[in-house]
């Protein structure tokens, strides 16, 4: 008898299910999604909520109207914050569009990191309005370490990629979705810089991961452009 047999045997006795019993049919709740109201709304509403929730999570945000303006915005923000104008960026081809050549003050390198880089720039799968979170994945073009080791993490979110709730973001990474045939090795929802309250419940920022999480929000949703202020 292996431990596996032991454990499964004890489980089957405990729950009175014989070995080889048919898989359970889907429970009733499985077909009744329970999505919070705050994860629903028009694109403009979701964008507004995403920004508000992200700011609450101590994420800074700068908006640019065009993909070509991203690099310039980053260079300007780093300079304004007194941070070095050097960054490691995800080697994802999608990152090419952000106008790096328009920001000569910004020195970039593509690849993973072992902690030598102070600033990283990564793409995102989605911005999630529900909690102001961003979703990032690990893959050949998106090394996981970029989200965690540098002191400053800059994430690029496209306004038309903002979704309401967690499930909407997950729809993009499921097998045979946007990210390929299988689920990415890691899917992470990040909601603010690294923090701890382990010492006297006092919140301190930047324990192991980034001390700053900055979002460059690119473009606007259709209804924002048409009807509302951006």
């Amino acid at each position: 008898m292996t431990a596996r047999d032991d454990i499964l045997g004890r489980i089957r006795t405990a729950i009175n299910r014989p070995a080889g019993a048919a898989p359970p049919s889907a429970p009733a709740y499985a077909n009744q999604p329970l999505i919070p109201d705050r994860a629903q709304g028009t694109p403009a509403e979701l964008t507004k909520r995403f920004i508000a929730m992200a700011i609450e999570a101590e994420i800074s945000i700068e908006r640019v109207s065009d993909v070509g303006d991203v690099a310039g915005s980053i260079a300007g923000w780093l300079n304004a914050e007194g941070l070095p104008g050097r960054a490691v960026i995800s080697p994802d081809p999608a990152m090419d569009a952000y106008g790096w050549d328009t920001a000569p003050a910004l020195e970039i390198r593509r690849g993973a990191t072992r902690g030598e880089d102070l600033v990283s720039v990564t793409p995102t799968i989605a911005g999630i309005a529900e909690t102001g979170s961003i979703m990032v994945t690990a893959g050949p073009g998106t090394p996981y370490t970029l989200n965690f080791l540098p002191e400053t993490h800059i994430a690029i979110v496209h306004a038309d990629r903002i979704v309401g709730g967690y499930e909407d973001a997950w729809a993009r990474v499921r097998p045979n979705g946007e990210t390929g045939a299988s689920l990415p090795r890691t899917v992470t929802m990040i909601t603010g810089p690294s923090r701890s309250s382990d010492i006297e419940r006092t919140v301190t920022i930047g324990v192991h991961g980034p001390k700053r999480l900055h979002i460059v929000l690119v473009g606007a949703t259709g209804d924002e452009v048409d009807g509302q202020e951006t």
Partner: peptide
Amino acid sequence: ATGQEITCYTTVATGPKRPDDLDG
């Protein structure tokens, strides 16, 4: 747990590093 909306990092990880991955 802590009164937060969600923790800062919520990671769903599946298996080891894949052939073309740069880390993991």
